[in-house]
């Protein structure tokens, strides 16, 4: 029994990181209609920046995290303004390809500025073990779970109550009608990219604290795709849940079946779910008219 609990809890902890990145993916998809293939790379870049800051300011964990988040705001704005906005109105295919090219640049750029060796992100906190009953969790794992919960609650309230959140939903529903109502789609896109970069950055920092900072970090972006598909591409909250589900499914597959199945468990889950719900668990069915 304890074994099962341990497997589920550590699955939730991994899933929280997938979930955060998946929320970023869904946020961009919802407001711009694009799949951002550079989401994992954004997380990787912020993790590297945090690692550099940690080297510059040893003993100031909160400054490091704050600095990295400022960097992620800048990153999000820069990508939107310099790369994505000029592509506004171009075919979706071409724009998605641009995010793929961006991923290539970020990956190679990180290796160029830093190096291919894995590094430990040591900011003095996050690595200690907290006992929840008989189950041990690292501080950063707990923080990732709490952050995911906060993000879920925050986005729920944001979409429901804030003006910008409502505007975002309007742009997602019909960007032309929203623009006619006086909503600046460009500004909404900028907000979406920035918010998405910030949560990707947070996920990157958690990941780096738990594992390492290395060019491999971008893989986590690939793992987040099943999460956001499971939850529904246009459902920000659903994607968060999707991440947790994938994390738990992986761990149960690894714990009770074979370890080699673990990495494809998430994919098997999404195939099964999509057969029943073709728009994900929480996604909205497109109403198509001819």
């Amino acid at each position: 029994m304890q074994y099962l609990v341990d497997q589920i809890v550590s699955g939730i902890a991994v899933g929280a990181i997938y979930g955060l990145i998946a929320m970023g993916l869904a946020l961009i998809y919802k407001s711009t209609g694009l799949a951002n293939f550079a989401q994992g790379e954004m997380a990787m870049l912020i993790a590297y920046i945090a690692w550099t800051l940690a080297g510059l300011m040893p003993g100031h964990p909160w400054l490091v995290v704050g600095g990295a988040l400022v960097a992620s705001v800048v990153l999000g704005l820069a990508i939107e303004r310099l790369i994505m906005r000029p592509m506004l109105g171009e075919p979706v295919f071409a724009t998605v390809m641009v995010t793929i090219a961006l991923a290539v640049i970020l990956r190679a750029g990180a290796m160029l500025i830093w190096d291919p060796y894995p590094h430990a992100l040591d900011i003095g906190i996050g690595r200690g073990v907290v006992m929840l009953g008989a189950t041990g969790l690292r501080e950063a794992q707990l923080a990732a779970i709490l952050t995911l919960m906060a993000a879920l609650a925050g986005f729920w309230a944001f979409f429901r109550y804030s003006r910008i959140g409502k505007a975002m939903r309007a742009v997602a529903a019909d960007s032309r009608a929203a623009q006619l109502m006086g909503i600046s789609a460009a500004r909404i896109h900028a907000i979406a990219w920035t918010a998405s970069a910030v949560i990707a950055g947070l996920a990157g920092i958690f990941f780096a604290l738990l594992y390492d900072v290395s060019p491999n970090l971008y893989h986590v972006g690939l793992k987040s795709f099943p999460a956001t598909i499971l939850g529904g591409l246009d459902s920000v909250l659903g994607s968060g849940f999707g991440g947790v589900l994938i994390g738990v499914a992986e761990n149960l597959a690894g714990g009770y079946l074979a370890s080699s199945i673990k990495e494809i468990a998430g994919f098997i889950v999404i195939i099964a779910v999509l057969m029943i719900r073709p728009f994900g668990l929480f996604g909205e069915r497109d109403i198509e008219r001819v």
């Binding site: 497997q7 491999n216 992986e250 370890s259």
Partner: peptide
């Protein structure tokens, strides 16, 4: 005795299995 997939990053389920 088990194999993990190349590129895997999280080993929580495997290590739980090792422990048990």
């Amino acid at each position: 005795q088990a194999d993990y997939k190349k590129g895997q990053q999280d080993f929580s389920s495997e290590m739980l299995k090792v422990r048990s």
